[in-house]
Design a protein around this nucleic acid. Structure first.
Lengths: 360, 360
DNA sequence: CCCTACCTGTGAAACGCTTCAAAAAGTTCG
DNA sequence: CGAACTTTTTGAAGCGTTTCACAGGTAGGG
């Protein structure tokens, strides 16, 4: 533990071969006779040799590690992204390390700096929406970057989902289930939420007045915000009350649904349908499983990693792409099934009360 | 982007100083005259020089990066650990990267291999409990490792909480609140859960028969498992029914509480007190905020990082320590306040139903 | 039996930085 | 003004790999 760790020269000496041969055993085993190879491998095992990755990166001029920098790891959507990226990286025989920017500008910057210094093979970045300008300087200096869940200006690959489309699909689902008085609830400081609202507006407009839309601005998109929304809804008279809510995010939907359920006056989804957004695992244990829009995070992560791997492998032919994915409706039990659609929801309602709740 | 990136020699040339001086500006600014320093800094900025971290690590023989390998990032307890470790690392001017073993043996191993190759300054490991034997070989080869949430055999620093004590405190809290028929529910395949049960047993034994304990083994510790428990409890007659439940983990407690609430026959905490474990953020949006045992993850992470930093700074004097922390009771609203204790719970009940639920 | 091809194995030359002994430049003081 | 320090700067020697032009050996063909 005090003494110097063995290096390739030590291994070479022990195996009675040259230094370059050891390197070949490590990197191009096919170029070495089985006989020689096993001698070298025996020496490696005997000495407990572990190749020095920093020297390797330096000499080879390229690392085998990707970095994934995430806005906020507590949001499970980002974990899905990481999972997908990891799968793709592994398939390409690359490693991937994670870092959490914790929604802080300084952290995002300092991790980007770190990864640039460490000469990682590439950076996957799921950034805070207002910190996209940190990308251009990196690209300028030749750092490989792919952006997830956003699209910065300039020549960069990116993978995102179409939030406008998501809002549209969510609203359409409620409408198809028979809702006529929609409420959109969410915090307008999130660009994604604003996009979803825009899509909702479009879906409502397409009904030509048959469906009404009310917009409620909340502080954030937490369960507490959902509770506030529930309070407002409950204070309304039957005519003024929405029969379908598009929530800006799952936790908001969760709070709304649970507060509604426990108050016992309105049934979900019979009296009030609620659809969330993100398929967030923090909301999976909802009393009534939430219908939600899934952003296919795993697949996004995979695509992003594949983009950066392509850039890595074919620096010359690679051209930057902007991938926009379609969010996927995940019908569970917080919304009514489509009128005339006998298909059961993917997830059965597990949490329904024994006794019928009171009439609205 | 095609041309070679600038290196220290380029900077030295541009600034009209020697190569060693540039290095000093980077690493020992105090050793350089302000005049010279600013010349060098100007050159760095002009060339867009970014120091090559792999070369630095190689030459210096030591990296400035710690690695944190976690059993399962979807569990927010581990995120707390990471947060604490990051704080401590930052204070010591070290970086920290994350990796997720996803509870898989091969991943845990391959990340450990990666970090050893990359010669990180140290590895913080929150391992799967049955994969502790991967630690010894690393230590043997001189890799700095600190283990969190477990204690492997051998000469290693570790930080964990006392689960026996936690189970004891949890039970004591219920008893102090007036519970007399306790139920412990959890999956016995988790060593931590078994320890908690042991503590609970001790607390019950100390009452000299005044309090009874029943043990229910569940498949896992998810909300669904909690639902199963709720079903069993509801099927019981009033005499046979427990009045206090110690859940092996928060999600289990969450499922139990919510299923109970929505059935409307029993009140929480009046008829049934429930205490969870872990202060898991996935359970924060519970209808009735969960009383739970907090493992002080942030502080654990911080301590672990401090241990490894000490080993890093004082390799000679450093001696390995096993830190065992005390879990902390976080009283919220799913358990009755202590008899005669007028202090309100830290977290007020936000989700209580408008109408009183039916009598038990 | 020689020549050509091919396959293995060789080892010096990078890679870009830190380190550190020694040289150079400054400073103090008699 | 110069000796005796102190502070600042210098640059060559590593760090442990990979790379690649080349040497040595083997086999097949003429």
């Amino acid at each position: 533990m005090e003494e110097r760790q063995p290096n390739v020269a030590d291994v070479a000496r022990a195996a009675g071969v040259s230094l370059g041969t050891v390197s070949n055993v490590l990197n191009n085993p096919a170029k070495v006779t089985p006989r020689t190879r096993s001698k070298v491998e025996a020496a490696i095992a005997a000495l407990g040799f572990v190749r020095n990755g920093t020297a390797r990166s330096l000499a080879a001029g390229t690392s085998r590690t990707l970095a994934f920098l995430v806005e906020d790891l507590t949001n499970t959507f980002f974990l899905d992204l990481a999972k997908g990226a990891e799968e793709a990286a592994q398939a390409a025989n690359l490693n991937i390390v994670l870092a959490n920017a914790d929604s802080r500008e300084d952290k995002q910057r300092s991790y980007l700096d770190l990864f640039e210094e460490e000469r990682v093979a590439g950076i996957l970045l799921a950034p805070r929406q207002d910190l996209l300008d940190q990308v251009a300087p990196l690209r300028y200096r030749g750092v490989r970057v792919v952006v997830l869940n956003a699209h910065p200006p300039g020549d960069v690959c990116s993978v995102e989902t179409d939030n406008v489309r998501g809002g549209y699909l969510a609203a359409q689902h409620l409408i198809a289930g028979g809702c006529r008085r929609l409420l959109f609830a969410g915090a307008h400081r999130f660009p994604a939420v604003v996009d979803r609202l825009q899509g909702t507006r479009r879906a409502v407009a397409e009904t030509g007045g048959e469906v009404t839309l009310e917009v409620m601005t909340t502080d954030g998109v937490t369960a507490d915000d959902g509770y506030e929304v529930a309070t407002v809804i409950h204070s309304r008279s039957d005519q003024d009350r929405p029969d379908g809510v598009i929530a800006g995010a799952d936790l908001l939907a969760l709070g709304l649904v649970q507060a509604t359920l426990v108050r016992g006056r309105l049934r979900v989804p019979e009296d009030l349908s609620v659809i969330g957004y993100d398929n967030n695992r923090e909301a999976w244990s909802s009393l009534v499983p939430l219908t939600t829009m899934d952003q296919a995070g795993v697949q996004m992560g995979r695509s992003a990693a594949e983009l950066i791997i392509d850039e890595l492998r074919n620096p010359r032919e690679h051209e930057h792409r902007r991938i926009v994915m379609e969010p996927i409706l995940v019908p569970k039990s917080s919304t009514r099934p489509l009128v005339g659609d006998p298909a059961p929801p993917a997830t059965p309602a597990r949490w329904l009360p024994e006794h019928a709740p009171g009439q609205a």
